[in-house]
């Protein structure tokens, strides 16, 4: 007897317990199934549209493709300036991310580790700036940007995108730097390291998860931005993907096949970066931003 007891389940589940578990599973997996369908059906529709021949799109409509074609993809890639748009977007997004992160790391270090008057004021100004809606600024910025020399070029967008990217990155970096114990740095400073060296050899390596989240958010924002690109860029050679794609719609004629093919390709960079950085997102946000 004594030898058989430990092999059995320690507590026999009561019927009430079992019923509770069943209900939990039904709610959990039923809920997840509904949310998955709701989230994924537009993606399936994009994919399905992008590989269906025109005949199946407009005349003999079907949910799933009857025959598969790569015509829309080759049209987007080789008969439109899509690749130029893609290159412009990549350049703008990468540059915005790099510049914003550099500015943010320097500023966050100053605000968390240095003692000076005006610290709170700058911190507050950063947050207020982050919160001021772009819709409030786009009319005056449109007027100002028209008079600047780089206006109309993709690179000029980098400067505009710093409006969002810098305050956001700085704020997230501040929250994270605050969690790094100061003893680490004090030791280095006693050894004679300069402030700049201690920032890049101690803080930046420790803050990598937060920096990954910052990079993800700023890259995605710059890659996806539409309004300012639309206002400021006219020449085809300077267009980014979002405005380039929007112009596949000529008048009221929508070439849905190429449009969806282009949309799929254009979604890949942020989605792939997001999947790669995903494990840090929740912890990065929780570690700094909204820990209440």
């Amino acid at each position: 007897m004594a030898t058989t007891i430990p092999l059995r389940h320690p507590v026999t589940p009561s019927p009430r317990h079992l019923r509770g578990k069943t209900i939990r599973n039904v709610v959990l997996f039923g809920g997840l199934a509904i949310f998955t369908v709701w989230t994924l059906f537009p993606f399936l529709w994009i994919i399905s549209t992008s590989i269906k021949p025109d005949r199946d799109l407009y005349r003999r409509v079907s949910l799933l493709p009857q025959t598969i074609t790569d015509a829309h993809y080759s049209e987007v890639l080789f008969e439109t300036p899509f690749l130029t748009y893609f290159r412009n977007s990549a350049m703008v997004a990468i540059l915005t991310t790099a510049v914003a992160m550099l500015i943010a790391v320097l500023a966050a270090y100053a605000m968390t580790r240095l003692s000076f008057r005006g610290r709170t004021f700058v911190a507050r100004a950063t947050i207020v700036t982050y919160l001021i809606p772009a819709a409030l600024l786009f009319i005056p910025l449109f007027q100002i940007a028209q008079q600047l020399p780089f206006s109309g070029e993709a690179l000029g967008l980098v400067i505009i995108y710093l409006i969002f990217a810098v305050p956001f990155s700085t704020w997230l970096a501040i929250s994270y730097f605050n969690t790094i114990p100061s003893d680490l740095e004090d030791a280095a400073l006693v050894d004679g390291a300069t402030r700049l060296r201690s920032l890049f050899t101690i803080f930046v390596p420790l803050a990598l998860p937060a920096l990954a989240v910052i990079a993800l958010f700023t890259f995605t924002h710059a890659w996806n931005e539409f309004l300012f690109a639309l206002l400021l860029i006219q020449r085809d050679s300077q267009k980014t993907v979002p405005i380039g794609l929007a112009e596949f719609v000529v008048g009221d004629v929508f070439a849905w096949g190429p449009l969806m093919a282009g949309s799929l390709i254009a979604s890949l960079p942020p989605v792939l970066i997001y999947i790669a950085a995903q494990k840090w997102v929740v912890s990065g946000l929780g570690g700094g931003a909204i820990k209440g």
């Binding site: 539409f226 405005i243 979604s267 942020p270 970066i273 997001y274 995903q278």
Partner: peptide, 10 residues
């Protein structure tokens, strides 16, 4: 979380 990463215009 996917919809969040896709460009709004798309």
């Amino acid at each position: 979380f996917l919809p969040w990463a896709v460009p709004t215009i798309i």
